[in-house]
Structure formats: C-alpha cells, structure tokens
Design a protein around this nucleic acid. Structure first.
Length: 573
RNA sequence: CGGAGCGUAGCGCAGCUUGGUAGCGCACCACAAUGGGGUUGUGGGGGUCGAAGGUUCGAAUCCUUUCGCUCCGACCA
C-alpha cells in the first residue's frame, strides 16, 4: 500500500475529549472518529487492525472446532420475555418498535437467540456437543460510555455458545476455550492473565476473565507470588487471620476526638496505626428501612460485591444517608462504632481478630480506646467483607497477594441451564428422555482488544503495535523521492520485493519532509521501518529501525527482505 | 440518574466579566524557497458563535428554555 492511495489521517494535537492514551492515540493516528457518544467510525487504518484481531480470533475458534454463524443484531422481544430478561436487563437494553409497533431490541448479547436456535436445530444427544460463535456488532446503552472504543456503546464482539448433554462435556469445552483464549491473546502479542471471576448477573458456575495487563486498566487483579492463583479483586477471598485474637491488655476508655472523623484523622490524633482502629459503615438492609452495620479494620477497604451477597444486606449495596444515620444511631458518620449499637452488626473476619481497638463511641467527638470483643461487646457475626491487599496471604495458601491492573477483554462462563431451562431447550438422551441442555458462553471484546493493545504498548511518540495486529508490518520511507532517480528506482524495487515476500508494507510516497514521515510512522505504530536514501545507496545499504529501538542499523539492500522476513516470523510466534 | 464543566472554522483555543466589523495556532488551497526529525515566506478559502425564545437601536457576549458533549459516582466484552 502507498500513502498516496492510503491517506494517513493523522493529527498533531490531542482532541480534548480523549482521556486515556489509547483513545488519544487512536484519534491522533486516524484509526477512529466519533459520531456520537459511544459510537465510532473505524477509518481504514483502524479497520485494518480490527480485522487482524478478528482474523486471529476466527482462526483459533475454527481450530477449536467452533462453528461460525451470524445472528441478527435486532431481536424480537418475545424471546427476551421468555428468558425473563426483557424486564431484568433494564435501560442498558436498546428497545425499538417496528412499523407494526412490535417490540424489538438491538442485541447486547445473544443467549436468547442462540438458545432458540438450538432448541429448534438440536434434537438428539448425538448432535452434542456443539459450539456456535459469531463476530458481530453489539449495542449496550452504557450509562457512561468512556475511553473511546474501550467502553463504547456499539462494539464488535466475538460471542460463542456451547451446548452439552452433561456437565463433564461442558467442562471439556470450557477448558478448551480457556486454552483457545490463551492462544488468541498470545498470538495478538499481548501480556495477559486469566483470572477467576464473579459470575455476576448472568449466573452460572465457573467463570474466568481474561485481562490485558495495563496500569490504566479499570479492574484490579489479585495474583499469588508463589502459585498461578489469580482472581478479580472483587472475588479474591481475604482469609481468616492466622492465630488467636490476643488477650485484652488495655482498659476501655472514652477519649475526646473533636473534629476527628476519618480513620486517618483519628489514628493520627491518637498517635496510633489505622490497623488498630475499626471503622463502622452503615448500609441499607434487606428489610424495609432497615440498616446494617459493617465493621472493618481501619486500613481495610469494603468489597461491595462481597457485602451485597450477605442475606441481611440490600442488593445493590447502598450506603445509608447522613440523616438516616443521625436518626438511627444519634451521631454523624465520623463517630460510629460497634459498642452498644442498636442495629444488626457484621464484622469482617480481620476486624474480629483485633484486640484493644479504637472505634467511634456513637457520640459526636468521642471515641473509645482499648475496646475488646467479648469483654466490652459481644463477639460479632463475621464474614469476608474486605478487598484483599498487597501482602495478604494468597487464598490458595501459597505465597502472598500482589495486585495489578487489567483490562477485561474476554470472559468465559459455565452457564449451566439458566437459559435452556427457561426456554425449554431440550434434546433426547440415550434413553429417549427429554433432557435440558447445559450451556457455556464465551466472549471476546474484539474492538476492546485493539484499544487494550495500545494501552499496553505505546510511548510518547505513539502506538507500538505487536506485529501480528499492526495495520502494516513495515514502513518504507524514501528520502527525496522526487529528486533522486536512484532512490526512486531502489525504493520501487524494494517495495515490490517486500510485497512479493508477503509482507504488509506501507510505502510513504508523499512529497513531505522526512521528519513528517518519521513522526507519522511512529504515531501509527508500524513496528518496522526502512529508510532508503542516497547516503545508504552509495554503500549499497538501507537503514532499518524497529519501533522500540533508538538507533538505526545499516543493512545491505539485497539482505533486507530476508532480514525482515526473519524478524517478522519471530514476532508472530 | 445525581454532581461538575464545556459547546466559537476539520482540530486546539481566545473573545463573553464591561453588548458595537468574529479572531489566533494547526490543518486545508496557491505560489516560491527548502529537502535526513512535524522547514520557511507570501497570498487565499472556510464560521447562521449548539438550537429556540427574550431584553436591546444593536447579542458570541445579558436573561430563559432546550439539545449535545466531556469529567466524577452505580454496569460490562
């Protein structure tokens, strides 16, 4: 391809709307343009990358024996009513009416459609297992679209759904998809981790998320230093602290703590450590107008997912308002404590293991010190309520926790019979009896992978593509193209040779100054660059530089194609 | 949806407080010079100032309404 035929729509200035690196760079490099909130046009340069990711995904899915199909993006309401999700899915579902006022939605996912297909197409256990997939545009009316195509409303997704006669069979396909996903992200040249995940609203048994590791990622992931344990922070268990709670050593006293509200303020004021303070959070309970007190160690953070799984606690988790707290407990937020509190109380397991602690006295401006469970107040009901922290023991008993950030690009689920049962998707088993099928589902955010790749691989000059998904593998830059016949001849010949070698090459034949070309090629992230100029030609060489390198190397012009071919084959493995 | 902010040329912004010819940089077009890290000069094209209504002799500017977008909190590939 030549830049004269493939214009680079690059811009020097960063559009003000873009917050994160990938969004800024995708706009600046001319990969995408925004049409409206959460809606993007993929320009030719961006589409080349999207198609390459898509190609890898398709290739690996096919290799795993999955069958590609294509379902409609617009779906009739009936099926969603049948599964119960027409009500449940809420405002994120874009609903439409046709000219006859029949109700439809634009598909945010396709469980209903595929289950409907399966119940019609599949009659016998002999047809199982099957794994159908598609690569298709989805729409989710996100509350807050953000970060360009990272969290767009319309996005490209690969979604797969498998059907089984047994849990064993599901487990086999699940394991195979786990391996397939690993291969896909490896081939994309990305650093990623598979982590245990919450099954969330979709429900089901096992679930893993695949995260591209990047400091700007929205999710926190807990890893073990000594094993392959990895879990979403939402899910990672904080273990019961080892050892007995120390015996009380101090007298319980009331102290004045004027204007000291936060744990930091109180612990600094009393010259102690946050870990010896307990904080008490008041949340709404399941019962009408009821409140529940959650007690955590001062240096720990509440995990809302864990909290809202408690029977007593309302889902979704909401904090009580200042007024509710004032009227129920009689003090303001900064002075609440577990002693003599008049609402149900649940303590985090770590908080229950602290002796001689400091806590609010349920009177403004007062705290207690030297408080002890069982002596000064009853031993609490306990639960795992907190986020794990760096340095906590790993839940699998091996090593300790480190925390990294990631971007969720894939998610695999064992759905079980959630949809097949609701929609009566059955097959006949060996005994001729109807049996509800067991399902799995497997998603990859194809357009998000593109953004995540940039988030993980960029520098101050621009994008640095992994070779397998780069829009072009090699940039060919002639110096003084319009002034030098020698350069012209050499570069044309090289261009043809590279193309004949099956290399994706972009020849910059614009009449622009070299600095302009360099800047554009670096911004658009083309991994390999060749400069052809008079200087080199005198010696029979061209200049080569990899996108991550800072120095040129001179390579004989008759060697360059084989050198490149070798580097590219190393890149893609 | 709640809170904050912004809408002026394709992009980045000034002008608004104190009403009076709509500006700057980048990009774009033409010519010339330049030609190995976003070069320079000269000349040029492009804006119903988000929209509607009001106040006024006169509104980008003041008032009201409305739409859109971005950011901070609850969803997910």
């Amino acid at each position: 391809m030549r830049t004269s035929q493939f214009p680079l729509q690059t811009v020097k200035e960063t559009p003000s709307e873009a917050e994160v690196a990938s969004h800024q760079l995708m706009l600046r490099a001319g990969m995408i343009r925004k049409l409206a909130s959460g809606l993007y046009t993929w320009l030719p340069l961006g589409l080349r990358v999207l198609r390459k990711v898509e190609g890898i995904v398709r290739d690996e899915m096919n290799r795993a024996g999955a069958l590609e199909l294509l379902m409609p993006a617009v779906q009739p309401a009936e099926l969603w009513l049948e599964s119960g999700r027409w009500e449940k899915y809420g405002p994120e579902l874009l609903r439409l009416n046709d000219r006859h006022q029949r109700e439809f939605c634009f598909g945010p996912t396709h469980e209903e459609i595929i289950t409907d297909l399966a119940r019609n197409e599949l009659q016998s256990y002999k047809q199982l297992p099957v794994n159908y997939y598609q690569i298709q545009t989805k729409f989710r009316d996100e509350i807050r679209p953000r970060f360009g195509v990272m969290r767009a409303r319309e996005f490209l997704m690969k979604d797969a759904y498998s059907f089984h006669a047994s849990q064993d069979s599901l487990q086999q396909t699940y394991d195979q998809m786990y391996a397939t996903y690993s291969r896909i992200f490896e081939r994309c040249g990305l650093m990623f981790r598979a982590v245990q995940a919450d099954t969330g609203s979709i429900g089901g048994n096992a679930s893993h998320e695949f995260h591209v590791l990047a400091d700007s990622g929205e999710d926190a992931i807990a890893f073990s230093t000594a094993s392959d344990y990895a879990a979403n922070l939402e899910l990672a268990e904080a273990l019961v602290p080892a050892g007995e709670r120390p015996a009380p050593a101090a007298e319980m006293k009331t102290v004045d703590t004027p204007e000291q509200h936060s744990i930091d303020e109180v612990s600094t004021f009393l010259n102690t450590d946050p870990s010896s303070c307990l904080k008490t959070l008041i949340v709404h309970g399941t019962e009408e107008e009821s409140l529940v007190a959650l007690v955590l160690r001062g240096d720990h953070e509440l995990n809302p997912i864990k909290a809202e799984k408690l029977e007593m606690v309302a889902e979704p988790l909401t904090m009580a308002t200042d007024e509710e707290i004032k009227s129920a407990i009689g003090c303001s937020v900064g002075s609440i404590g577990p002693v003599d509190i008049n609402i149900p109380l649940i303590a985090d397991r770590s908080a229950a293991a602290v002796a001689d602690f400091i806590c609010g006295a349920n009177k403004d401006g007062k705290h207690y010190t030297g408080v002890n469970w069982e002596r000064d107040l009853p031993a609490p009901q306990t639960a795992d309520l907190r986020n794990v922290q760096e340095g906590d023991p790993s839940p699998d008993g091996k090593g300790s926790i480190t925390i990294a950030r990631g971007i969720e690009v894939g998610h695999i689920f064992q759905l079980g019979q959630r949809y097949s049962e609701a929609m009566n998707a059955t097959i006949l088993d060996e005994n001729g009896r109807a049996q509800v099928m067991t399902m799995g589902c497997y998603g990859i955010g194809v357009s998000r992978v593109v953004a995540a790749a940039i988030e993980q691989n960029h520098d101050e000059k621009g994008i640095i593509w992994p070779a397998a998904i780069a829009p072009f593998q090699v940039a060919l830059l002639p110096m003084k193209l319009n002034k030098s016949h020698r350069v012209q001849e050499a570069v044309e010949q090289l261009y043809n040779e590279l193309q004949d070698a099956g290399i994706d090459v972009l020849l910059d034949d614009r009449d622009v100054r070299p600095g302009f070309m360099f800047a554009d090629m670096e911004l658009t992230g083309i991994p390999h660059r060749i400069v052809v100029g008079e200087r080199g030609l005198d010696e029979g060489t061209v200049e080569y530089r990899g996108r991550r390198e800072t120095e040129n190397s001179m390579i004989a012009i008759d060697q360059i194609v084989s050198v490149l071919r070798e580097r590219l084959s190393n890149d893609t493995t």
